[in-house]
Protein backbone atom coordinates (compact mmCIF):
# COMPACT_ATOMS: atom_id res chain seq x y z
CA UNK A 1 0.00 0.00 0.00
CA UNK A 2 2.38 2.74 1.07
CA UNK A 3 2.38 4.50 -2.24
CA UNK A 4 0.38 7.41 -0.90
CA UNK A 5 0.09 9.31 2.35
CA UNK A 6 -3.02 8.66 4.25
CA UNK A 7 -5.04 11.86 4.35
CA UNK A 8 -6.54 11.29 7.76
CA UNK A 9 -3.27 10.59 9.48
CA UNK A 10 -1.74 13.61 7.81
CA UNK A 11 -4.63 15.81 8.84
CA UNK A 12 -4.35 14.78 12.48
CA UNK A 13 -0.62 15.38 12.55
CA UNK A 14 -0.82 18.64 10.64
CA UNK A 15 -3.54 20.04 12.85
CA UNK A 16 -1.65 19.08 16.00
CA UNK A 17 1.52 20.67 14.66
CA UNK A 18 -0.06 23.95 13.63
CA UNK A 19 -2.08 24.03 16.83
CA UNK A 20 1.00 23.31 18.91
CA UNK A 21 2.94 25.99 17.14
CA UNK A 22 0.18 28.52 17.68
CA UNK A 23 -0.03 27.44 21.30
CA UNK A 24 3.68 27.90 21.66
CA UNK A 25 3.72 31.48 20.42
CA UNK A 26 0.52 32.49 22.18
CA UNK A 27 1.10 30.87 25.55
CA UNK A 28 1.86 33.34 28.33
CA UNK A 29 3.59 30.79 30.48
CA UNK A 30 7.03 30.06 29.19
CA UNK A 31 7.07 26.53 30.57
CA UNK A 32 3.89 25.78 28.70
CA UNK A 33 5.48 27.08 25.56
CA UNK A 34 8.30 24.64 25.97
CA UNK A 35 5.82 21.80 26.36
CA UNK A 36 4.02 22.93 23.19
CA UNK A 37 7.34 22.74 21.39
CA UNK A 38 7.68 19.18 22.63
CA UNK A 39 4.27 18.40 21.19
CA UNK A 40 5.20 19.86 17.81
CA UNK A 41 8.44 17.86 17.75
CA UNK A 42 6.67 14.61 18.45
CA UNK A 43 4.08 15.34 15.78
CA UNK A 44 6.86 16.09 13.35
CA UNK A 45 8.38 12.72 14.15
CA UNK A 46 5.04 11.15 13.31
CA UNK A 47 5.02 13.00 10.04
CA UNK A 48 8.46 11.61 9.20
CA UNK A 49 7.21 8.13 10.00
CA UNK A 50 4.35 8.75 7.64
CA UNK A 51 6.91 9.57 4.99
CA UNK A 52 8.71 6.24 5.56
CA UNK A 53 11.69 8.01 7.21
CA UNK A 54 11.74 5.83 10.30
CA UNK A 55 15.31 6.61 11.17
CA UNK A 56 14.85 10.36 10.89
CA UNK A 57 11.73 10.11 13.01
CA UNK A 58 13.73 8.34 15.67
CA UNK A 59 16.48 10.91 15.62
CA UNK A 60 13.89 13.69 15.74
CA UNK A 61 12.43 12.19 18.88
CA UNK A 62 15.83 11.77 20.47
CA UNK A 63 17.23 15.17 19.56
CA UNK A 64 14.20 17.39 19.90
CA UNK A 65 12.00 15.68 22.42
CA UNK A 66 14.92 14.29 24.34
CA UNK A 67 17.53 17.03 24.17
CA UNK A 68 16.40 20.38 22.86
CA UNK A 69 13.21 20.67 24.86
CA UNK A 70 14.83 19.39 28.01
CA UNK A 71 17.62 21.93 27.59
CA UNK A 72 15.07 24.67 27.04
CA UNK A 73 13.09 23.79 30.13
CA UNK A 74 16.33 23.60 32.04
CA UNK A 75 17.32 27.12 30.96
CA UNK A 76 13.86 28.43 31.75
CA UNK A 77 14.15 27.02 35.23
CA UNK A 78 17.51 28.66 35.81
CA UNK A 79 16.50 32.06 34.51
CA UNK A 80 13.34 32.21 36.59
CA UNK A 81 13.83 33.67 40.02
CA UNK A 82 10.28 33.18 41.16
CA UNK A 83 7.62 30.81 40.02
CA UNK A 84 5.39 33.71 38.98
CA UNK A 85 8.03 34.97 36.58
CA UNK A 86 7.12 32.13 34.28
CA UNK A 87 3.93 33.94 33.43
CA UNK A 88 4.75 36.72 31.08
CA UNK A 89 2.82 39.71 29.84
CA UNK A 90 1.24 39.31 26.47
CA UNK A 91 3.69 40.56 23.95
CA UNK A 92 1.60 40.75 20.86
CA UNK A 93 3.06 42.85 18.08
CA UNK A 94 1.37 44.04 14.91
CA UNK A 95 4.56 44.55 12.86
CA UNK A 96 5.64 41.02 13.67
CA UNK A 97 2.28 39.64 12.65
CA UNK A 98 2.33 41.60 9.40
CA UNK A 99 5.81 40.38 8.60
CA UNK A 100 4.92 36.79 9.39
CA UNK A 101 1.75 36.98 7.27
CA UNK A 102 3.65 38.50 4.36
CA UNK A 103 6.33 35.84 4.54
CA UNK A 104 3.74 33.10 4.94
CA UNK A 105 1.86 34.46 1.91
CA UNK A 106 4.98 34.35 -0.17
CA UNK A 107 5.81 30.83 0.95
CA UNK A 108 2.27 29.62 0.32
CA UNK A 109 2.28 31.19 -3.10
CA UNK A 110 5.57 29.50 -3.85
CA UNK A 111 4.32 26.14 -2.55
CA UNK A 112 1.04 26.39 -4.46
CA UNK A 113 2.98 27.12 -7.61
CA UNK A 114 5.27 24.15 -7.23
CA UNK A 115 5.35 22.74 -10.73
CA UNK A 116 5.30 19.00 -10.01
CA UNK A 117 1.87 17.98 -8.86
CA UNK A 118 2.87 14.87 -6.98
CA UNK A 119 0.30 12.82 -5.21
CA UNK A 120 1.65 9.31 -5.18
CA UNK A 121 4.95 8.35 -3.71
CA UNK A 122 7.47 6.48 -5.87
CA UNK A 123 8.20 2.92 -4.89
CA UNK A 124 11.92 2.98 -4.69
CA UNK A 125 13.13 3.51 -1.16
CA UNK A 126 16.63 3.35 0.24
CA UNK A 127 16.86 0.82 3.03
CA UNK A 128 18.39 1.85 6.36
CA UNK A 129 21.46 -0.16 5.28
CA UNK A 130 21.92 1.91 2.14
CA UNK A 131 21.37 5.08 4.13
CA UNK A 132 24.08 3.98 6.52
CA UNK A 133 26.41 3.35 3.61
CA UNK A 134 25.59 6.77 2.23
CA UNK A 135 26.29 8.43 5.52
CA UNK A 136 29.45 6.65 6.58
CA UNK A 137 31.41 5.94 3.39
CA UNK A 138 33.95 8.22 1.83
CA UNK A 139 31.91 8.35 -1.39
CA UNK A 140 28.94 9.54 0.61
CA UNK A 141 28.81 11.99 3.45
CA UNK A 142 31.50 10.63 5.76
CA UNK A 143 33.48 13.87 5.65
CA UNK A 144 30.41 15.99 6.27
CA UNK A 145 29.50 13.67 9.10
CA UNK A 146 32.90 14.14 10.69
CA UNK A 147 32.63 17.90 10.29
CA UNK A 148 29.23 17.75 11.95
CA UNK A 149 30.73 15.87 14.85
CA UNK A 150 33.45 18.52 15.17
CA UNK A 151 30.76 21.18 15.07
CA UNK A 152 28.91 19.46 17.88
CA UNK A 153 32.09 19.19 19.94
CA UNK A 154 32.83 22.89 19.44
CA UNK A 155 29.24 23.75 20.34
CA UNK A 156 29.54 21.62 23.44
CA UNK A 157 32.73 23.39 24.48
CA UNK A 158 31.18 26.77 23.77
CA UNK A 159 28.10 25.94 25.74
CA UNK A 160 30.18 24.80 28.70
CA UNK A 161 32.39 27.89 28.46
CA UNK A 162 29.53 30.35 28.30
CA UNK A 163 27.40 28.77 30.96
CA UNK A 164 30.16 28.63 33.57
CA UNK A 165 29.81 30.56 36.80
CA UNK A 166 31.31 34.05 36.64
CA UNK A 167 31.99 36.26 39.56
CA UNK A 168 31.60 39.97 38.97
Amino acid sequence: MPNTVDGIAFAILAISMVGGALGMVSSRNIVHAALWLLEVSVAAAGLYYLLDADFIALVQLLVYAGAVVVLTVFTVMITLRRREDAVRPVDFSWPALLLALALGGILLAAAANFPKKTISMPDAMPSIVRFGELLFTARGYALAFEIASVLLTVALLAAVWWSREVED
Partner: peptide, 16 residues
Protein backbone atom coordinates in the same frame (compact mmCIF):
# COMPACT_ATOMS: atom_id res chain seq x y z
CA UNK B 1 15.59 41.30 12.76
CA UNK B 2 12.37 42.82 11.53
CA UNK B 3 14.25 45.10 9.20
CA UNK B 4 16.12 42.16 7.76
CA UNK B 5 12.94 40.16 7.31
CA UNK B 6 11.15 43.08 5.71
CA UNK B 7 14.04 43.51 3.36
CA UNK B 8 13.92 39.82 2.47
CA UNK B 9 10.23 40.05 1.75
CA UNK B 10 10.72 43.09 -0.46
CA UNK B 11 13.52 41.32 -2.30
CA UNK B 12 11.45 38.21 -2.89
CA UNK B 13 8.53 40.31 -4.11
CA UNK B 14 10.86 42.09 -6.51
CA UNK B 15 12.06 38.74 -7.81
CA UNK B 16 8.48 37.56 -8.20
Amino acid sequence: QRLVLGAVIVLVLVVF
